[in-house]
Design a protein around this nucleic acid. Sequence first.
DNA 1: GTTCATATTTGTAATCATTACAAATATATA
DNA 2: TATATATTTGTAATGATTACAAATATGAAC
Lengths: 145, 145
Amino acid sequence: MNNIKNLIDDKGVKPTYHRIKILEFLQNNKNHPTADKIYEEIVKYIPTISKTTVYNTLKIFVEKEIIEELTITGNETHYELTEDTGPHHHFYCTQCKTIFDIEAECNQECSKKNDIDGNKVQSYQCYYKGICCNCLRKNNNEMNN
Amino acid sequence: MNNIKNLIDDKGVKPTYHRIKILEFLQNNKNHPTADKIYEEIVKYIPTISKTTVYNTLKIFVEKEIIEELTITGNETHYELTEDTGPHHHFYCTQCKTIFDIEAECNQECSKKNDIDGNKVQSYQCYYKGICCNCLRKNNNEMNN
DNA sequence: GTTCATATTTGTAATCATTACAAATATATA
DNA sequence: TATATATTTGTAATGATTACAAATATGAAC
């Protein structure tokens, strides 16, 4: 709670109750939620919160690089904390729509560049799309029945 | 023209006039156009074409892996030919909204995997977001005036 | 060539995430 | 306490994409 407050404060963002709760949720949910998912969960605890506030807050957090946005699926943005856990890739399962982390065993150097060919880099993302192992197994079981 | 016809035919897609023109456009425009941009240009030559046809066609092409979709910006999908030019990254300028290729000097091996940790890979993308060198220069000039 | 089944295309309406915007509320400052 | 500023809220608008049914074209069988 307090470290979250400081995290926001340090970036020059006023740590309001709403903002703290949203960041807290992202810290406890590493499954790359969408704005809508965040709203659905937060509204259980803050019934008066509006979806616009969630969008506004997420936008501020992205600008301040407190969180990062993942644009993988094409129709909704997912969010994650700007982690201290080092660079990682993402896997998006087109069947169950889940996004999960993939250890980035290669291109560590790419992720650290803040300049490439004279262009100023603000963020770097890599993602795989495909069928996750859970769905593969499920599909296989259904085939054999 | 004929090679495009064959390219479509080989993938089991009937090479209709619309489909050939759409693929032809993508072959001549390497600037990662959106569905809307493709429609705008094609409709000049085929005034009766509908936007739905463009979307349908692009979807078929993606399924057959004739083209690839880039989901970078979060609010619209960009398309490019599944190139024979080897893997590359993309740079998205948040100021001028341009997408251009970046030579992939690292992680060549990642892009070739069709299995990662037991998950079946269908596509792989890496992108940078930031300010391109043209916009940087422009911004700099404006500052000095 | 005609008939029939199928594939493709079209146009319109719906969907859904996100944003715009102005009013309402809370917060901080004098 | 009064006033300015920041935050939050609710509603309406936007815009890319999809759903869907009707219209049209294509191809095979006769």
